[in-house]
Amino acid sequence: MEFILGDAIKGLVGGLLIGCSAAILLLANGRIAGISGIAGALITKSATKLRFENLAFVLGLITAPLAYSVLIEQPEIGVSTNPIMLVFAGLCVGLGTRLGSGCTSGHGVCGLSRFSPRSLASVLTFVGTAMLVASGVRMITGAPV
């Protein structure tokens, strides 16, 4: 294990920002800041008055990192370039988060803080599964895909 205090502090501060974002959305708009739920609602047929609200959230989420990379520095994004794995993982994440009613933000940030048993079960399952898969991939290939 490699513990770097600066990374932990940046993680904590970044996490606090994420939590504040979720808190604002809950207390002002009465909404759960679940990214899969908000993004998924963008492609449903039933057009609700929340559609533009969801769009505004997603636009903010997409453009803030772009602004950061233009104004401050380009964040490092180390990601697989295997197209088959990218498509496979994307399909799993899209289908899984809708089937399971939430992802790291909805169940993780918003659900755990509400002491929801469903969210706790979900988080333990997806974190456990992801650890098994990531560690398995490492064991077989000696490197990430």
Partner: peptide, 11 residues
Amino acid sequence: GAILFGIGWGV
């Protein structure tokens, strides 16, 4: 759903 999501996330 959580298992499926975990697979994609872990890959």
